Simulated scan of single mutants.
Amino acid sequence: MSKQIEKIIEKGLFASRWLMAPFYIGLIGALIVLLCSFIQELWHFITSIPIITQNEAVLGILSLIDLSLAGNLLLIVIFSGYENFVSKIDFDDHKDQPEWHGSVDFSALKLKLIASIVAISGIHLLKVFMDVHKTSENEIKWMVIIHIAFVFSGVLLAVMDRIAASTKIKKKK
Score class of each variant (00 low, 15 high):
136 S>Q: 02
41 E>D: 06
13 L>H: 03
47 T>N: 06
113 L>H: 06
10 E>Y: 06
128 V>L: 13
115 A>G: 10
83 E>L: 01
127 K>L: 07
35 L>V: 04
50 P>A: 00
128 V>I: 09
56 E>T: 02
141 K>F: 15
96 D>I: 05
52 I>R: 14
77 V>E: 08
161 D>Y: 12
73 L>H: 07
92 D>K: 08
118 V>R: 08
44 H>A: 12
116 S>T: 09
71 G>T: 04
98 P>T: 01
88 K>C: 09
46 I>L: 13
78 I>L: 03
169 I>E: 14
143 M>G: 10
116 S>E: 10
79 F>A: 02
14 F>P: 00
9 I>D: 06
94 H>F: 15
16 S>H: 03
28 I>L: 15
90 D>H: 14
167 T>W: 03
117 I>G: 04
162 R>D: 12
65 I>Q: 01
145 I>G: 07
70 A>T: 07
141 K>S: 14
112 K>I: 02
13 L>E: 06
79 F>M: 07
3 K>N: 11
91 F>A: 15
96 D>S: 12
41 E>W: 02
148 I>Q: 12
51 I>S: 13
143 M>F: 09
12 G>N: 08
72 N>C: 09
52 I>L: 11
40 Q>V: 07
160 M>L: 14
35 L>G: 04
74 L>H: 02
73 L>F: 11
91 F>M: 15
27 L>T: 00
50 P>T: 01
